[in-house]
């Protein structure tokens, strides 16, 4: 226990970085997910192909490989970002592909009649998506989106591999000093579990609050 209490400030900083990375990445991944899901149902074949290509590429590569590629390969051609930014971009891009598929599944639950009625009152494609299709499609997949957000939280620990000092890296650093892996990593694990429980609670709350009367 001493190992945890004496290094509370390092671990605390790590936890804050993990939370920041999770929040920033979740927002980015959601926006990207909605954009890519929209591409995948667009009336223009080229846009659909772009959406499909995005999902196939990002889903079929390991996140760690993407992180390493982005952080160590891009600078060799002159593109580099701060480490936190790099990790946020890569994780958002990666989780965005998974969110896009969940959102597309949600959109598919909305009946064709809803889109037809939206078009019949003169809404454009974008307007019917925004006011009619997405509000109903997203409600149908709140739970899977929550699951992906939890997976995203866990995946932020991979940022440790490219030098971001988030919770896992902070725990690792503390353990190198104290050599008490059980205490240190159990403590870090409990913190992750707490964060995941919070995401789960928020998901459940949203699902109850936004339920469509049927």
């Amino acid at each position: 226990m001493d190992a945890l209490t004496t290094h509370l400030s390092e671990l605390g900083h790590g936890l804050v970085t993990t939370v920041e990375l999770t929040v920033v990445t979740t927002v980015g991944a959601m926006l990207l997910g909605i954009a890519v899901a929209t591409l995948r149902i667009a009336p223009v074949p080229l846009l659909r192909a772009i959406g499909t290509a995005y999902v196939e590429v990002l889903q079929n590569l390991p996140l760690l490989a993407l992180l390493v590629l982005f952080v160590f390969a891009l600078p060799t051609i002159g593109i580099s970002f701060p480490l936190f930014t790099s990790a946020a971009i890569v994780i958002a891009a990666y989780e965005g592909a998974y969110l896009a598929e969940a959102i597309r599944a949600g959109i598919n639950t909305v009946g064709v009649g809803q889109a037809e009625a939206a078009r019949a009152i003169g809404l454009t494609f974008g307007q019917s998506l925004r006011h009619v299709i997405l509000p109903q499609g997203l409600r149908a997949v709140i739970q899977p989106i929550g699951n992906i957000c939890i997976a995203l939280l866990m995946n932020t620990s991979l940022a440790a591999a490219v030098g971001v000092v988030e919770l896992t890296q902070a725990a690792n650093n503390v353990n190198l000093l104290e050599a008490q892996p059980i205490a240190v990593f159990t403590g870090a694990g409990l913190a992750y579990m707490l964060l995941a429980l919070i995401i789960g609670q928020v998901t459940g709350l949203l699902e109850r609050r936004l339920a469509i009367v049927r």
Partner: peptide
């Protein structure tokens, strides 16, 4: 054929469907 011009025209043509298609949310 499509696009905003079609949306504008549709606004002038009301439609009532067999299955109502009211927006559920």
């Amino acid at each position: 054929a499509e696009g905003r011009a079609l949306a504008r025209l549709r606004a002038d043509v009301g439609m009532v469907f067999q299955s109502f298609n009211l927006f559920g949310h």
